[in-house]
């Protein structure tokens, strides 16, 4: 497994834990009605689990297993996909500040979109038939 996939997948596991923790607090609030402000965690619960866990895990596994190139960098321009990793995670974390700074949600989403576009650019040419030496 390449280093970048390790980072993607381990980060996704951390978001799984964060997302489940937020979800658990919300479910406890549903059961016991202790502190209604817990519901403010709902957007984070969704963001951590959808973008942080599911999307990021898919990106890490895709970077690992889709066909490689035969010459030069075997997985294409890794720098572009590293930038995608940084932007995606910066976007999730910046977006998590939305409760205190509402504008953080917009900045975070833009960062996530840039991360997603860079991932597609970095992976596009690898979606090809498996041929020898190409």
């Amino acid at each position: 497994m390449p280093r970048l996939s390790v980072w993607f997948i381990r980060a996704s596991m951390l978001y799984l834990l964060l997302g489940l923790f937020c979800g658990a607090l919300i479910l406890i609030e549903k059961g016991l009605f202790i502190y209604a402000a817990i519901w403010n965690l709902f957007p984070l619960h969704v963001e951590f689990l959808l973008i942080g866990w599911l999307f990021q895990l898919a990106m890490g596994v895709a970077f690992w297993i889709v066909p490689r190139f035969g010459k030069g960098f075997s997985r294409g321009s890794e720098g572009v996909v590293w930038a995608s990793f940084v932007l995606l995670n910066a976007g999730i974390l910046i977006g998590a500040l939305q409760f205190w700074f509402p504008v953080a949600l917009l900045i975070g989403r833009i960062s996530e979109v840039c991360g997603g576009i860079l991932f597609v650019i970095g992976s596009w040419r690898r979606i090809k038939p498996q041929t020898k030496g190409k």
Binding site: L16, L20, A24, L27, I28, G31
Partner: peptide, 20 residues
């Protein structure tokens, strides 16, 4: 049902921790 939801929350979070 309130306390059952607390148990459910703990179980689901535990599943994630064990997986990781």
């Amino acid at each position: 049902s309130g306390w059952a939801l607390v148990v459910s929350a703990a179980l689901q979070f535990t599943a994630g921790v064990l997986f990781v």
